[in-house]
């Protein structure tokens, strides 16, 4: 289980990495923490000619606390979030989520940018960023652009990223201090990818609720009707029905078991937020 040969480019800057991507013409890939890419290389599942190592681009490791948002360089590791070595504007949701990703040895090297770029529907950051209404700053040959997390992911392992673009940073808006979050994730085992996960954000003071369900064989699902029903005071079976119908309406062809699971998880996500 060894990778096929490839050439190696150690990027000195974001622009240098983008140039190398462009030169690679679709057969170059960015190496961030390598926690998903290298397993795929070992399994010979990721055909490529060139690996562009961005780990020496220091700017990508930085996090900046701005007034309305926090900006995280693409190379901020899961462990850095978990240990609160970077600022948090999510009332603790991001550190909590980070601590649930895989295992510590993976969290030490795995990065938020790398995770998002892969767009594994069962991975944690994608759902979290969609829930937090984050956006991604993307660098390409034509310069920089920003895209909302919800628009960035198109489907399972499919993103809005062009072959010569890379994620430079993630910007997460500062959440209201009165907002509470609920998080519920089911996985077969500790550290495994989620079978279902939900994040709910509830701000009673602002009469605001947001509910996102992930690991849904595609982009995370934002359940707006369910969030509204919750605000309207629906609970238990009445709320369950709304969630279920909205999940069904997403057209993802969930099996009966999976639909039950997602519905339960969404309910519990909301419940978790409401209980705080």
């Amino acid at each position: 289980m060894k990778p096929a040969p490839f050439s190696y480019h150690r990027a000195t800057s974001v622009d240098d990495a983008v140039a190398a991507l462009t030169q690679g013409a679709g057969m170059a890939r960015i190496l961030a923490g390598g926690q998903s890419l290298v397993p795929m290389l070992n399994l010979r599942l990721a055909p490529l000619d060139t690996v562009i190592d961005i780990s020496r681009v220091d700017s990508l490791r930085q996090a900046h606390d701005d007034a309305d948002s926090v900006r995280y360089g693409a190379l901020v590791t899961h462990a850095a979030f978990e240990d609160r070595r970077v600022p948090d504007g999510s009332n603790g949701l991001m550190p909590f989520v980070a601590g649930q990703i895989a295992y510590r040895a993976v969290r030490n090297r795995g990065t938020i940018g790398g995770s998002l770029a892969l767009a594994d529907p069962a991975a944690d950051w994608l759902t979290t960023l969609v829930a937090l209404e984050g956006k991604l700053l993307i660098a390409g040959p034509e310069g920089r652009r920003a895209v909302a997390a919800a628009d960035f992911v198109i489907g399972s392992y499919l993103t809005d990223l062009a072959e010569n673009e890379m994620i430079e940073a993630v910007v997460v808006p500062r959440r209201s201090a009165t907002e509470r979050w609920g998080h519920y994730k089911v996985a077969r085992k500790t550290g495994e990818y989620a079978e279902s996960m939900a994040i709910a954000l509830v701000d009673k003071a602002r009469n605001y609720a947001r509910l996102v369900v992930g690991a849904t064989d595609g982009a995370p699902l934002v359940l707006e009707q369910a969030a509204q029903a919750f605000l309207d005071g629906r609970t238990d079976d009445a709320l369950r029905v709304v969630i279920r119908d909205e999940l069904l309406a997403a057209g993802r062809e969930f099996s009966a078991a999976r639909l039950t699971m997602h519905t339960t998880v969404a309910m519990r996500g909301l419940k978790g937020a409401a209980a705080k």
């Binding site: 089911v186 077969r188 079978e195 099996s255 009966a256 078991a257 999976r258 039950t260 699971m261």
Partner: peptide
Amino acid sequence: VTPERILDAIA
């Protein structure tokens, strides 16, 4: 005895 099998049995 997977979650799927349990949920299917219940369903």
